[in-house]
Design a protein around this nucleic acid. Sequence first.
DNA 1: GTAGGGTTAG
Length: 598
Amino acid sequence: MHPKPKLFHGKFILVNIFPGHKHPLRPFSSDNTSLPIVTELISKQHWKSLKTHLQNASPITPLQQLLDSRVDPCLTLRYFNWSEKEFNLSHSLEHSCMLIHSLANAKRYPKMRSFLYSFVKNENSISVSSIFHAISVSGDSFCASSIIADMLVLAYVNNMKSHLAFEAFKRAGDYGFKLSAVSCNPLLSALVKEDKIEDVEYVYKEMIRRRIEVNAISFNTVINGLCKVGKLNKASDVIQDMKAWGVLPDVITYNTLISGYCKKGRIGKMYKADAILKEMIANEVRPNEITYNILIDGFCKDENLMAAMKVFREMETQGLKPTVVTYNSLINKLGLEGKLDEASGMLDDMVGSGLKPNVVTYNVLINGYCKKGKMKEATDLFDDVVKQGISPTVVTYNTLIYAYCKDGRMEDAFALRESMVDKGTFPDVTTYNCLISGLCREGNITAVRKLINEMLNKGLKVDVVTYNILVDALCNDGESRKAARLLDEMVKMSLRLNHVTYNTLMDGYCREGNLRAALNVRTRMEKEGMRANVATYNVLIKGLCKKGKLEDANGLLNEMLEKGLIPNRTTYEIVKVEMVDKGFVPDIEGHMYNISGS
DNA sequence: GTAGGGTTAG
């Protein structure tokens, strides 16, 4: 019996053609007769032999043949990747799409995922729309096209190209390809992280319209996005949506909403947060450690350490153990209040209860010392942390660098920056902002320019804080008009101006006695959709008082209270010095009345 | 693939 070499993939062919590679291969021929050899060489990964076999033939031809044949698409993929690397070429979009279609038809999903991931990573010139066109013309399975589109969206998200992911999401709708939560949820999550809340809302609405599966994660992500930008009523609407879809709010839903309320600076926010806690319990969703951590931190930020401690004790009665995060919130608050002995006592408690402090624990404690001007203690603790084998983070360094800058110790600040680089922690925008603010305080504009150039050269981008520092510096120099021009520059750089930007400029104008200009800035701010916050009112109230316009100032104070904004320490200080001492008295709600008879 | 803590500007 002599085996017939009839099968392309039969072992005998290979043995007969080139037993052990000792004989030269038959040269590649561009008709299909070479395909079995090529296939065999690929499956054995005999790349050297394959290259010899191909000789001077175009590497495209075998790809074309493989795509036209019924060989395992994984072999085609291997050839695709090898040939791109070996011949330093990029295969055409059409061939790429044919390959991805054959992988999809063979249900080789992990292979598709990594193929699309590298495709998206390396490809910067092909538009999303041409990719979709190619997907739709290079395969006829609608189902496969949908899976490909889904994975493409995910590939963009995973490559941090969320704007392209968003575009692909829209294109998929144009072509009627059906996406899934597998890609849409990460897309939503990426858009939330980038504060692109309008896009989040668009994707969410489209998911419902296109009947894409919307699960608890989708809802929770959207709710988180809305909470992040303070649209808490809309977030509650989404909770209603989710109930209507038969998805019950879970502990993450409630935690997200509670956190949203905690972060909003309105009167009664913690009351509302507490109400949601009760609601979740009534709906039989058990609060977890994270729920309590959110509440504890919320009360700390609300200047209510007593309430925070009460929740802390309540946690234990619910059978929940405080975590590192719980302690970090409390230590942070104690440190910021200057209660450093209590803060380090809390650290001891935490260690005593078997928890291991992390770098955040030390960062907040170091910050506490810094804010109290206890630099010796701060740096001692820093050394201690290093000795314990905990790596300081960029935040640790920034905390100390800022403290040095604020203390006028610019040399120490720059020395610490050198040392962080030596240890492999690289300065970020915040590091530079701290140094820039220090130099501005010294009036060293030349050094500021140099530093900004340096950060740009390192590929770091100036941010809104950098500009706010510069705006403030100009205002302090009595150059508010120049500062105003920086705002236009910020817009040109598509930086999002924030409250601090506007308030700083308003303050600059107020201090120059130019109230008109200050009020114009407020108008501009509101045109941009930003409502005046407590600090805005503080600046304007103070400005009006300084001009002797006490009744107008009082009007603004009332307006602020009516809008549910909580007066802060600065407000009280202004009201005391500028109003109470000049004949106004407060009623029980904080409204002021002029009793001097005017 | 969803929730919690730390640094900078007013």
